[in-house]
Nucleic acid binder design. Sequence first.
DNA 1: AATGAATGAGCGTTCATTCAT
DNA 2: CATGAATGAACGCTCATTCAT
Lengths: 192, 192, 192, 192
Amino acid sequence: MENKPNKFDKILNSAIKIIGQKGFHGAKVKDIANDAGVADGTIYNYFNNKEDILITIFKVKLEEYVNMAKEEIIGIDNPEEKLRTLVKYHFKVMTETPYLANVLQIELRQPMKELRVKVRKHLKNYFKLIEKVIEEGKEKGFFNKELDVYLAREIYFGTLDEIVSTWIFKGGQWNLLETSDKLVPIFLKAFK
Amino acid sequence: MENKPNKFDKILNSAIKIIGQKGFHGAKVKDIANDAGVADGTIYNYFNNKEDILITIFKVKLEEYVNMAKEEIIGIDNPEEKLRTLVKYHFKVMTETPYLANVLQIELRQPMKELRVKVRKHLKNYFKLIEKVIEEGKEKGFFNKELDVYLAREIYFGTLDEIVSTWIFKGGQWNLLETSDKLVPIFLKAFK
Amino acid sequence: MENKPNKFDKILNSAIKIIGQKGFHGAKVKDIANDAGVADGTIYNYFNNKEDILITIFKVKLEEYVNMAKEEIIGIDNPEEKLRTLVKYHFKVMTETPYLANVLQIELRQPMKELRVKVRKHLKNYFKLIEKVIEEGKEKGFFNKELDVYLAREIYFGTLDEIVSTWIFKGGQWNLLETSDKLVPIFLKAFK
Amino acid sequence: MENKPNKFDKILNSAIKIIGQKGFHGAKVKDIANDAGVADGTIYNYFNNKEDILITIFKVKLEEYVNMAKEEIIGIDNPEEKLRTLVKYHFKVMTETPYLANVLQIELRQPMKELRVKVRKHLKNYFKLIEKVIEEGKEKGFFNKELDVYLAREIYFGTLDEIVSTWIFKGGQWNLLETSDKLVPIFLKAFK
DNA sequence: AATGAATGAGCGTTCATTCAT
DNA sequence: CATGAATGAACGCTCATTCAT
């Protein structure tokens, strides 16, 4: 139970690093294997093929992310405060794991349709979490009763996505946490 | 005076179609040539290489887009009305030219860094247009004097981008114009 | 009778320049046409194909060379003096027309067998000229009666060829005429 | 310990054969792979690229040649005898490995300058060997004290090169060893 | 499980040649 | 004769995947 997980994790982390640096197409299986310190062929003992690696990154890391995000808001009652916490957490993770941020931001828009479907599937739980918070905000009277939850989630996620994209694009030159201080009040107004 | 532009346009439109369907990597030069009804080599009379095709799509089509968008708001005084018009125009174009929408939405996040830089460069004028409208809204008292224009533009663009992404992802099953009717009031509230 | 020869010569000289710089394979028909100030297609009004250009260079330039070389020794009786003159003339031409020297030195060893046959054919008259001088030297008692004329010609031509090759290879850093002053006495001893 | 050298040698020998027949440009990587009984891609496990194959031929085969040539003269004291042995050995190798002879004779004059430099580099040790023998001949009083060693080497190599070129060109119709019996005395006279 | 040599389909690009104008 | 846009066959090289050891 220890050898395999170790190697699996090693490969997965190397994949995040290499794909984050070079993109899915630019990342060669050999590069990932080298970085992980295993032979090319070994990768195929843990993953079906190259696509499977990417999909697994999304599956594992987004699940991790959602679980952590849920823990972050576990003691919070106020839906507005929950939202603020989620935004901060999003920016924090992106700042602290830049390779992963690159992968999530960029590979989410997979040009290969079938791959895109598989990849976006794992966002669903993240979307659900956000939608639940917004729903709760509506129920508790913080947000507008007429607010379309799905649209609000698109505003939420699209905005965060764009902010991180720009931030990555500009080389991560500023502190995203300060951005969240300006962003959250606007969200709250928007959803009122 | 007619042949050359015709062939250039033919190739460009075929490229939009094929790249829109299969993504930049999935689109083979041969596919584009076949679709345009020219020989492979002919493409290289009009473009330096495959990358150049993608960059040219962004250059030409975004310039066209921005020029048309500017015309759309030419007679309008009210900044809120301008914003509403721009949102509608965005959704209209995406609806009417789905292949182009695909290219713009997906290839904007090029994993190849150098290519991404070149591609995003041509968004600048679109960003400027939005920022100008928001700025004007602040000056005329429609929007909050404290509003960060760049952040507002990221909300605007990120949201539209995400909405269109989801819409494409779901196969374009609903009318984006109805979405705009719900979205614009939220933007206006957010920017107040 | 004037237009055509003009253009023919222009193309031929451009071909010598470009092939001399880049080699036969490296020289593109377009490069030659550009340098000659004509359209690509025009070349095919004067030459059957690219190979024909190279063959024509050898034909025209070697004929010119042999005719000039013959004139150089026209008033000379002494076969040793003739040999000295031919060596000097060889080095002089190679020094004064470096592009041509490049072509003759390098493209003579055409890897394409059929082309090589056609190219070397035009050396024949040059070989004959040398052989005649050596023959004459034997008859007049300057050279050894037992000397194999063909072998002597191979020594003569092979040596000059190698000297020029080395000289080109080293970037033409020294004066070939000085080399001839050292070389000729050795030839005379060898053929005695 | 046996597979890898085998495959490397197989590819190298096939390359000599194919390049010897068709020239460097005419030899397709696929041809070489087919002849060696390996897949195209396998070649790139042993060589960086096509150029590298040619350079390696020169490196390996000329090193082999020089080592063997050195052994040939190992027990010989007399520099004239050494020279005779080297000439015979040169012709013997060219006769026995005609493909290699083709490659060495023809590809030495690479039109591609950078490649030519790399290729000729590996001749240096052969040149040094000849020069050493000539130098020794001068010191021991067999050759003229005034003889320019580099020029003598150019005569030696240029002549052998031209003789083999002509011989290859004419289809190898006669015995080169007989030529050496006539050539060596001329060399000895020339260097006196 | 692990290895890494071997595979071979696949692709972007070049360029000699043609031919309608 | 001159043009130069169009052609399309051809090739070096890559790299995900396999499989004998």
